[in-house]
Design a protein around this nucleic acid. Sequence first.
DNA 1: CTGAAAGCGCTAACAG
DNA 2: CTGTTAGCGCTTTCAG
Lengths: 351, 351
Amino acid sequence: MICGVPKKRRNPQGSQEVTLRDIAVSLGLSHTTVSRALHDHPHISQNTKAQIRQAAEKLGYVPNSAARSMRSGHSQTVGLIVPDIENEFYSAAARSLADLCGAEGFRLLLAVSRDDPREEERQIQALREARVAGVLICATAKPTRDTIQMLGQLRSVQFLRAYAAISGPSVTVDDVGGLMKVTTHLIELGHKRIGYVGVSEELSTGKGRATGFRQAFKAKKLVPDAALMRFGPATPDFGHAAVYELLGRTDRPSALVIASPRIMLGALEATEAHDVEIPSDLSIVSYSDSDWLRIWRPPITAVALPLNQMAAAAAELLFQRIEHSTQSQTTEALTFESVLQVRASTSSPAT
Amino acid sequence: MICGVPKKRRNPQGSQEVTLRDIAVSLGLSHTTVSRALHDHPHISQNTKAQIRQAAEKLGYVPNSAARSMRSGHSQTVGLIVPDIENEFYSAAARSLADLCGAEGFRLLLAVSRDDPREEERQIQALREARVAGVLICATAKPTRDTIQMLGQLRSVQFLRAYAAISGPSVTVDDVGGLMKVTTHLIELGHKRIGYVGVSEELSTGKGRATGFRQAFKAKKLVPDAALMRFGPATPDFGHAAVYELLGRTDRPSALVIASPRIMLGALEATEAHDVEIPSDLSIVSYSDSDWLRIWRPPITAVALPLNQMAAAAAELLFQRIEHSTQSQTTEALTFESVLQVRASTSSPAT
DNA sequence: CTGAAAGCGCTAACAG
DNA sequence: CTGTTAGCGCTTTCAG
């Protein structure tokens, strides 16, 4: 058939969504005019605009962002990919990005990779299908080839963990410097046998931290005892096991560097199991500060990371890239400094 | 002009996205066939499917989810609205929902209301524009009328905080019962002067907790001393100020119920400032357990909430509602029980 | 100042 | 087994 009256039900589900056209016919106007009025286009009379806005309100019109983004070719959406949203490091990123999205009229798609490269790849694929304007990513230790390739075609910013294979700017903390500071502090207190418990060196963060630990020794013309270094997942359980074992050795360390706050939880528990007094029997320090470390008895010496500043910087960098898409293709790498908070958990060794 | 060859650049931005049609022409097929092949439609020969899949891969085809969702009238997306993503209560919800979304092939839109009802309303509006299939919400204390009305038109599940004005199922913890348990524990230890520090009673959670505290007294034919109750925001600063002041009174309480873990941080700091020994000078309990409370010295008596179970239940409930849209319109209200963990921070009062 | 018409990429009738 | 056609709701030329 050539011609016919417009049909009643709109889409397969027969859902009764109010569209621009509905507003238009209710007012005897064209849907074009309605669209323009709602976008406050200058060539529409104030009178008409008022009428249209009122009708839109009355009919309960809700713009369809899918339709809009299909026309315009991009969506007002950004993606965030994190290994674990319950970790304070990544939830800080989520908060900053969410704040900025609110201010800029963007929506935030949250993807959790659970540190699984295959999952990460799937999530990025999904974000590409949603035509996100950009992605903030805390990548897994071993991203797949496809992940790296897809990220190259997206506007992305790396946060906390940064891999050279992934293009684009990054915002990280100087893990090497932070660990050097705190390790140097222990060396200068007179400690010889210093243990290290941290996350896997496959992670860019774990790598940097262990490197900082070693460099602090090197700078003093000393060598760290590799037998006192332990690597594992960022869990209290691992912290407990590793520290329990280290403290059980006959040549137990006189000081411990714990390179993750989650590991620190288990570590402290292990010191109690061995009935070790801090700092008289053992000095202990944490990488990344927390409220509870500050009020612990004794208060724990820790390296404080400017997490919120970093997250805000990463989010802003992403939006800069989104807004001035062509320019600033420079691969900026922003590095933040941490601050050593010396508290009562560290002192000179007993002798 | 009436007729013309197909144009080169597709959309305003001239972006070079590969579409179904591009695959079709590259193979001399129709775009319909391509669509069907990629959806593994049964009426397409294996041969053609293979060819098409290969071409799609080679050309770097990425399906456009906006176009798809426009056709089908719904998006494979759910929304999550939380006051604060850095709070463990809400990040637990985010994790569970993200997990389930991954399994079900949905995307997760994260919205942070910062406990501001106007922001909450804006966020819900944005989720409606995205045509989300459902929403998991931890509502603010005083949602706007529009918020309530819009939620009524969405498939929604309330988490942790539940308001009767908002329709739909909810997943909460029995705050009243939890506070009763822990308060009764203190009363039975012999405490007469018991203080309470918690979040505002305007929040459904704050209301329930304060109610539980009072009911524990009522059940014992006692009356709580209203002069020892303090309400404020869930911050360490408030906890510090409130507890510092309570401990400075001449008739200081012999026990304290701290109804939020954030408040607990400041509370413990305040006990140290007053040089109060736990539990000999003061018994103290926390509502909601944490790893650090468990390993504190002395270990802190706390009410443990089954957060992860609750979050998983809420996420599942939402997907049930999404999948069987018509049925199960019953307003289920799931309530979880908490568990009292008695530790060393509580004992009978001194005298 | 307003309208007509085209088309974004995709799916789903309905024909062959 | 494959193609034709129409249209989801919206923005955007181009013509009045």
